[in-house]
Amino acid sequence: MGKLIKYEFRKQLLSKIVVGVVIAALEIYFALGLLLEKEGWLGMATAFLIFAAFISLFYFSFESIVTYSNDLRTKQSYMIFLTPRNMFQVVGAKLITTILQIVLTGCAFAAIAIGDVLLVCAKFGKVQELFDMLKEFFKALTGVEIRLNEVAYVILMMLVAWLVFIAMAMFAITLSTTLLSNWKYKGVVSVALYFALDWIVAKVATLVVPTGFLQSEYLVVNTEAWAFIGVYLGALALCYVGTALLLEKKVSV
């Protein structure tokens, strides 16, 4: 599966290079602002860096879906479907690549943000002051005392929810190119199917965890919270198995 992952990364390398160049340019802008003590430049660079981080995360996920769609709809599909690999490996490689991209991109932007903040603080000698200010800021914003397990839970929940979104999109695309391939309106049907799946997963999640712990004032990482993630992980597993089985049994490229 390692080789499949390698080529999934390689197919999507160009966008990473473009983002890397943009981030490098913004960092230079940021560094110049810091060196010359121009607050306007610092503010602009920070705003653009935050914007670039969100756009990149969205784009990389969207790109995974587009790449998968191309793998089924264009002649490049032969590159995958001629190789002696079973479809569980193929779909698994795509999902793992997506996870790695999201995690690595998130980590890279987090590292850049921490580095930039430390640079600012080192320059102006106010490291502790800044940390206190950030802590107060989050406390005021969320009304929640920052605790590591809660932060970890929220990050995990976001990652799982994002993965389910991608896995459901892949499943819907696969259905449209296999079982629904003879339908005139397969594109519309697959989009409708995606929203139906999304609704079902959300409904099941609220049925399994009816107390709505996420709506409570204070987030508590308890059994209900893990059950909520469990429902999404179940949906992810179903989409993975469903996609692989459809490709194995029905795909014609």
Partner: peptide, 9 residues
């Protein structure tokens, strides 16, 4: 195959 199918890169 009769058509080209290699990745564009």
């Amino acid at each position: 195959s009769t058509e080209p199918f290699f990745y564009s890169y």
